[in-house]
Design a protein around this nucleic acid. Structure first.
Length: 153
DNA sequence: GCCAACGTTGGC
DNA sequence: GCCAACGTTGGC
């Protein structure tokens, strides 16, 4: 069992969108970074736990808990000429971008970035390291437990 | 394969 | 809107 933090811009896809989504599940489309892709393709397993993080917004922070619902499969948006995620170099025979399905466990209070920074037990989080911009990062079990504790219940 | 230029991310 | 950080591109 592994733990992950996955960033989403709420203007594009928020925790409330996930609450409303069919089966409260979303294909994690739009990742266009190789390391983040590799985490999904090579390291995520069904049942892994996910921190759903809101980025590039007025109140960045953890907005809910989710889990990995599928193994990796091709991201359809890479084939869609009308999508901003279209990739001319990707083909169905040799897809370049893979994703997993993510299902809501529960929406939480917003655990703000400031609060994360103020929590000694969370200083090791990749997302808090200087210069880190990766949209998917591994989380340790210790960090996970600390976050759940801060969220309460 | 190097590396300068350029583009993107994302908090502030 | 700024800008630090870092990934990608492309000429050589």
């Amino acid at each position: 069992m592994a733990y992950w933090l996955m960033k989403s811009e709420p203007s594009e896809f928020s925790i409330d969108d996930l609450v409303k989504a069919k089966n409260q599940t979303v294909p994690w489309f739009g990742v266009r970074n190789y390391l983040a892709r590799n985490y999904m393709r090579d390291h995520m397993r069904v049942g892994d736990d996910v921190l759903f993080y809101h980025s590039s917004c007025p109140e960045p922070g953890i907005a809910g808990l989710a889990r990995v619902l599928s193994t990796a499969y091709p991201d359809e948006t890479q084939f869609d000429k009308k999508s901003k995620y279209f990739d001319a170099k990707a083909t169905r025979e040799t897809p370049r971008w893979m994703l997993v399905d993510v299902q809501l466990m529960r929406k939480s209070r917003l655990l703000s970035l400031a609060e994360l920074r103020d929590t000694p037990a969370l200083q090791t989080m990749v997302i808090l390291q200087r210069g880190n911009r990766l949209s998917i990062t591994p989380v340790t079990s210790t960090e996970w437990k600390s976050v759940v504790k801060l969220l309460g219940k």
